[in-house]
Design a protein around this nucleic acid. Structure first.
Length: 274
DNA sequence: ACCCAGGAAATTC
DNA sequence: GAATTTCATGGG
């Protein structure tokens, strides 16, 4: 008898759009359309059947956890309508992938994965993250691996991380782990404190600049006003939204950002000079 | 061989 | 201070 959680009347969610759009790096699509992944030291399979969302192998006591993870308390349809008024191309981008949601990932995992993301590509990021979990994360009953916590990684050296083949990012990961484990960087404080202060807090870590800080804030601490500017977004801003700044996208800028990022990545022809 | 990838640190000008 | 180079690794 397999246990599962069921959420009914789930709208504005597409698993592929949400789990494979570059905000999370640990979900793998199955042949049957579900996704296998690990979060919060729990290994689950996620499946969407119409508007019924199933979290397989999850306990009933974790209902609130997964409800939060998929951000089911937020009305994305309403938000999409609201931000679509800001700019017609943003409306196109939102309509292009209306099933994107901003996950509430674990803060430390988001921080680490976006440290790894710098000057890197999504495919290779996934490989490095997978090796990080297999090498240093706790083995779960089904043979998958949890994301290693800061205390565990703080006990390592950059050389210990060599098998990840993450190159120069190894020492950044160690610095992040040590500062989080020692309390020099307070991730939980960054949920609620002033945005610029949160940025400064994270940027104490070597290897964390404005962009990585913004990604950790958006994807790990659910600061949906964050608007990370990577190479894709800089191109998109210059080409599709000339003259506009992140501040022009309002309180849901982070959601707008993700629509634009995905839209741009799926339509690279938009940026080919003719 | 060269260029790029969800950047940031180190160095140079 | 602002602009450029370097940093590992892998794919195209």
């Amino acid at each position: 008898m397999k246990k599962f959680l069921k959420f009914e009347n789930v709208t504005d969610l597409d698993l592929a759009q949400t789990l494979d759009c570059g905000q999370s790096f640990r979900w793998v699509e199955r042949e049957d359309g579900g996704f296998d992944g690990v979060a919060f030291n729990r290994s689950v399979t996620v499946r969407l059947d119409g508007t019924d969302l199933y979290i397989e192998n999850a306990d009933e006591s974790d209902r609130e956890l997964w409800h939060s993870y998929f951000d089911l308390g937020l009305d994305y349809g309403k938000i999409r309508e609201e931000i679509s008024a800001i700019h017609p191309i943003l409306a196109d981008a939102a309509k292009y992938a209306p099933g994107i949601r901003i996950l509430r990932q674990e803060p430390y995992e988001a921080l680490c994965t976006f440290i790894i993301s710098q000057n890197n590509n999504i495919k290779r990021i996934k490989g490095i993250v997978q090796r990080l979990c297999e090498q240093f994360g706790d083995r779960l009953p089904d043979g998958t691996y949890a994301f290693p916590d800061a205390e565990k990684m703080a006990s390592l050296t950059a050389d210990d991380l060599a098998p990840l083949r993450a190159g120069f990012r190894n020492r950044y990961l160690v610095d992040a782990a040590r500062k989080v484990a020692d309390g020099d960087v307070d991730l939980e404080k960054c949920r609620s404190c002033d945005y610029d202060e949160a940025r400064r807090e994270l940027m104490q870590i070597t290897g964390v600049g404005v962009k990585v800080a913004d990604c950790a804030l958006l994807f790990g601490l659910h600061r949906i006003e964050a608007f990370p500017l990577d190479v894709w977004m800089k191109r998109a801003m210059a080409t599709l939204f000339p003259g506009m700044t992140p501040g022009d996208f309002g309180q849901y800028a982070g959601i707008a950002q993700q629509y634009i990022f995905h839209y741009s990545r799926m339509n690279p022809k938009l940026f080919e000079q003719t």
